Amino acid sequence: MELTDDDRARVAAAVALAERSTAGEIVTIVARRSDKYHDVALHWAVLAMLLVLALLALVPTAAVWLHGLVADPWEGAPSAGSLFTVALVLLAVTFLVVRLALAWMPLRLALTPGSTAARRVHERARMLFRTAAEARTLEATGVLVYLSLDEHRAEIIADHSIHKRVAPDIWGAAMAALIAATRDGRPGDGMAEAVRQIGLVLAEQFPPRSDDTNELPDRLIEL
Rank of each mutant, 00 (worst) to 15 (best):
residue 180 A to S: 13
residue 142 G to M: 09
residue 165 R to P: 02
residue 126 R to A: 15
residue 25 E to K: 08
residue 103 A to Q: 10
residue 75 E to Q: 15
residue 111 L to P: 04
residue 98 V to K: 00
residue 56 L to T: 13
residue 165 R to S: 12
residue 74 W to S: 15
residue 146 Y to I: 06
residue 159 D to S: 08
residue 183 R to W: 01
residue 44 W to G: 00
residue 80 A to S: 07
residue 180 A to M: 03
residue 191 M to E: 14
residue 109 L to I: 12
residue 111 L to W: 02
residue 70 V to Y: 12
residue 207 P to S: 07
residue 13 A to F: 11
residue 145 V to A: 08
residue 69 L to Q: 15
residue 185 G to W: 00
residue 5 D to E: 13
residue 205 Q to R: 15
residue 139 E to I: 04
residue 222 E to D: 06
residue 37 Y to V: 02
residue 189 D to C: 05
residue 102 L to R: 00
residue 8 R to S: 07
residue 199 G to A: 08
residue 157 I to R: 01
residue 193 E to K: 08
residue 12 A to G: 03
residue 213 T to M: 08
residue 7 D to K: 06
residue 87 A to Y: 06
residue 215 E to S: 06
residue 155 E to A: 10
residue 47 L to P: 01
residue 172 G to A: 14
residue 76 G to H: 02
residue 214 N to R: 07
residue 141 T to Y: 00
residue 180 A to N: 10
residue 209 R to W: 04
residue 21 S to F: 07
residue 167 A to Q: 12
residue 114 G to N: 09
residue 124 R to A: 13
residue 202 L to R: 05
residue 86 V to E: 10
residue 134 E to V: 06
residue 87 A to T: 06
residue 8 R to C: 07
residue 137 T to F: 05
residue 170 I to Y: 13
residue 22 T to D: 04
residue 125 A to W: 03
residue 177 A to K: 11
residue 52 V to L: 13
residue 48 A to H: 00
residue 127 M to V: 11
residue 110 A to T: 08
residue 179 I to V: 15
residue 50 L to N: 02
residue 52 V to W: 12
residue 167 A to P: 04
residue 48 A to N: 00
residue 130 R to I: 07
residue 87 A to Q: 12
residue 96 L to D: 11
residue 166 V to W: 05
residue 98 V to C: 00
residue 21 S to A: 15
residue 107 L to Y: 01
residue 208 P to N: 09
residue 92 A to V: 07
residue 144 L to D: 02
residue 167 A to I: 10
residue 176 A to D: 15
residue 148 S to I: 07
residue 44 W to E: 00
residue 139 E to M: 11
residue 4 T to W: 04
residue 198 I to T: 09
residue 153 R to Y: 03
residue 131 T to D: 14
residue 1 M to F: 03
residue 43 H to P: 00
residue 75 E to M: 13
residue 17 L to A: 14
residue 83 L to N: 04
residue 160 H to A: 15
residue 177 A to R: 13
residue 27 V to N: 02
residue 76 G to T: 05
residue 72 D to C: 07
residue 68 G to H: 09
residue 163 H to W: 11
residue 139 E to Q: 09
residue 181 A to P: 02
residue 50 L to T: 08
residue 16 A to E: 11
residue 191 M to W: 07
residue 38 H to W: 09
residue 73 P to Q: 08
residue 207 P to G: 08
residue 35 D to V: 03
residue 124 R to I: 04
residue 221 I to H: 06
residue 153 R to P: 04
residue 149 L to Q: 10
residue 142 G to A: 13
residue 101 A to N: 03
residue 19 E to C: 00
residue 124 R to E: 14
residue 112 T to D: 01
residue 81 G to V: 08
